[in-house]
Structure formats: C-alpha cells, structure tokens
Amino acid sequence: MIKIKDLEKYYRTEEVQTVALNKLSFEVKEGEFVAVMGPSGCGKSTLLNIIGLLDDPDGGSFEFNGIEVSGYKERQRANLRKHNIGFVFQSFNLIDELTVFENVELPLIYTGVKPAERKRRVEEVLEKMQIMHRRNHFPQQLSGGQQQRVAVARAVVNDPKLILADEPTGNLDSSNGNEVMQLLTELNEQGTTIVMVTHSEHDAKYSHRVIRMLDGHKVTESLLV
C-alpha cells in the first residue's frame, strides 16, 4: 500500500538546514499495523505527515497504492487524502466550535455524502466508539479519553484504507490509552491499515512491526507477529 524509497526532507531556517528524513525507505502492506518509534526529532512525525499527504518530500519517491504521489498538486492531495486516509493526533485536534456529531461528520461533508447518509454513518460510528450519548457536546466538555475516541471516530467515519496515528495516547492516562489502542487494534482487524508514531513501547506492542528511526533514517525493523 505504501512504498517509500530514499525519502528526503529538510527544514531550512535562515542559517541552518536540518535533515528530517535522510534517504528513508520502507514499505507498508495493506492490512498491516506498523509502529514507528524513535527519539524526539528523529523525523517520525515528518514521515507521518508525508504519508498523510500533508507535507511534500524534498526527494525520493512515495507510492500510494502503486501510484507515485510525491509530485501531486494540493488539490490532488486533498482529494486522495479525504477518500483514503484518516488521522488521529496526540492533541485530538477537534474543532472547538463544532459538537461531537459535527466533528465526526466533517470528513463526510468534504467527500460529498448526502445528509441522511451522513447521519446514519456518524451515528453508527459514534455507537461503535461508545460516545453516542455525548453527540451534542462540545469538545471542551469531554474528557481526554472521550475526545480521542471522537477523533478516532472522525478518522474512521469515511472508511479510510489507512489510518495515521501520531502518538494517539500521548495525552491520555493509561486506562484511556489502552482503550484507544484497543480501538485501533479492532479497526486493524477489520482490515484498516494503520501507521502509528509512538514513544511508548507499550503501545508499540499492539502493532505487527516496529520501525525504529534515528536522525531521519531507519535503524532497525522488527517483526512482532
């Protein structure tokens, strides 16, 4: 599903150039659950943003489902993204002005789903995430664990082929964290590919394969199952 070869990314400021990704190569097959680990600043979030088509690489190639997408224009990327990729962030990133229901509904709006169908699908996913009773609440009225469940609901409502999770438990206590990891595992078992960036060895254990990075390149890769 994801094929990355010699991927490069630099960040430049006026005086220095920092290498975020240094000739990084790896693949993720459909249905896999991959964890990316490494110390802060090793480039894992950058990698996730490039896979999520939020950011452009400076070199190398990136194939998504067999198609080279590294040269895609903004509009093409937005299109690919909204149909195929769901995001889960460490800081939840819910829109404060929208209710739980409306936040989850958002991706469906952008993919042009009709209102009645939207309602059905949002309710279904809220039910699944056991957050239906909070549907009319605003994000600030929820606990962290609940917010992350909403974020996961939003990520899966469009039935994406790929979920990208950026330290999904980083802002949660351990019991809420476990719940979220459980959710991701279930989604993976239902066929969704997951790439997760994490600091937590505990969380990484939920994955099939762990890629360890340092200074923008892969240092080890270990299969867990």
């Binding site: 509009r75 990133n93 819910l94 958002l106």
Partner: peptide
Amino acid sequence: AKEVGIRKSVGSSREQ
C-alpha cells in the same frame, strides 16, 4: 489556524 489544519487533514481543499 488549528481549524484550518484539521479541515485540511480531513480532506478540505484550499478552495473549499
């Protein structure tokens, strides 16, 4: 800014 980021990440194009 955050709202813009979220909307972009869930699939909004710049035109939208």
